[in-house]
Amino acid sequence: MSGDRRDRPALREPRWARWAIFVGGIGFLVVFVVLPLATVAVEALRKGFDVYRHSLSDPDTVSAIHMTLAVAAIAVPLNCVFGVAAAWAFGKFDFRGKTILVSLIDLPFSVSPVIAGMVFLLMFGLQGWFGSWLRDHHIKIVFALPGLVLATIFVTLPFVARELIPLMQEQGTDEEEAARMLGAGGFRIFWSITLPNIKWALLYGVLLCNARAMGEFGAVSVVSGHIRGLTNTLPLQVDILYNEYNMVGAFATASLLAGLALITLAAKSFLEWRYADQLALTRR
């Protein structure tokens, strides 16, 4: 452990303070980050690797995996399109009321996931605004895939947009305008000028969006109805198994999600390290 890059004497804390900061910071992270991760691994493998594998091949768990992938496969691309469209409108153009609209995009982050699920229950549930109409036409939204997708879209809506908007604002419109002067059309400009400039930031946003989409619990819990083998996603499956005191099963399922989280973190750190200059200013 050494001091500042250039080791400036005036910036050096006294020895005890340096150790206090080091031990305090690392200790905090160990308790809150490292130990929970280790717990997942240890509990999942408590009864050996075979039991671990066996509990992952449980049909309900397998169907939860499928459900999770299906939800993410719909929600993430939609939010991706939304993010790009929003970034084009807010990042490349100036108009009145822009600031307020941009701040509205972050709204889902300050709404409890439970409330995010609940609003769809209020609209499409049996007692909801469109409840009886949907029943008469035999359309199922809540307690079915569409409900899970809607709730997931709600909570993951900001991820792509908030990566792209500041970046596209910062990049300005010079290159696009130059392309326009040379006669390029809208899609041409987007594909050959804008997209190459934002691709790493887009990937970054998709990565975070996907992690949250696959891991969302509160919002989907409210709209899923917890129908085993039908509307359960992986996080909901963790909940069910845990409440049945099937600890190995719960932690084995959790280990899949923890693995996804670690892969996401690794990929995210790689992007921050390798393409720092092509991500928004707030990333290093």
Binding site: P36, L37, T39, V40, E43, L208, A211, M214, G215, E216, F217, G218, L234, P235, L236, V238, D239, Y242, A250, F251, A254, L257, A258, L260, A261, L262, T264, L265, K268
Partner: peptide
């Protein structure tokens, strides 16, 4: 940010 809340909860 990356770890699903349910996983955090049980662990």
């Amino acid at each position: 940010f990356a770890l699903p809340t349910a996983v955090a909860g049980v662990s």
